[in-house]
């Protein structure tokens, strides 16, 4: 067991544990804080894979910006466990079915990929470094990249339009 292995298992336990805590904690604010911990653990995994750019972008965008907005909403609504209305039990049933089928699809998709057979490349891959990532994005995947940027732009324009409407 080298240090990288130890770190890997530690981060895995942290990611899974805090992801479970997101679901099981009663207080929504606690849930969000556990979710942030999950993001940190995932970023740790990225760093182990030598994908520092992805790691830091994950932290900036998800943990830093999106989760702040989540916190905003939850804090302002002042949700308590008592004030959440009891849900329809069919709703829970539907949730279990849809979540289960998603799990099924994911396992089926991942089962056949090569990743399962190879060991994870620790500290050797360099696709996550900013230089290589930039080259790949702007050479091989330039069309999807630009299309998604147009999508973001239209979302921004929509937000401005909604904001302008008084």
């Amino acid at each position: 067991m080298s240090i990288t292995h130890l770190l890997f298992w530690f981060l895995t336990v942290l990611a899974l544990g805090s992801a479970l805590m997101v679901i099981f904690s009663k207080n929504p604010v606690h849930s969000i804080l556990w979710l942030i911990a999950t993001f940190f653990a995932i970023s740790g995994h990225y760093i182990l894979l030598n994908a520092q750019f992805l790691a830091i972008v994950n932290i900036i965008v998800y943990a830093g910006a999106i989760m702040v907005l989540f916190l905003f909403v939850v804090m302002l609504m002042n949700l308590n466990s008592a004030s959440i209305p009891l849900k329809n039990k069919w709703l829970g049933f539907a949730g279990v079915i849809s979540g289960g089928s998603l799990l099924l699809v994911l396992t089926a998709a991942l089962k056949d990929t090569e990743i399962m057979r190879n060991d994870v490349m620790m500290k050797t891959g360099d696709i996550g470094l900013i230089h290589n990532l930039g080259l790949v994005l702007f050479k091989d995947y330039v069309l999807p990249f630009e299309i998604s940027s147009v999508l973001f732009l239209s979302a921004m324009v929509g937000a401005v339009v909604i904001g302008k409407k008084d």
């Binding site: 520092q52 932290i59 900036i60 943990a63 830093g64 910006a65 702040v68 900013i130």
Partner: peptide
Amino acid sequence: INIGILYVFGVVSMGVYGMMI
């Protein structure tokens, strides 16, 4: 680290949580 600036941004964006929490 080769992403020095982004690291600073990441940490700064974490700083918001101290205030909010």
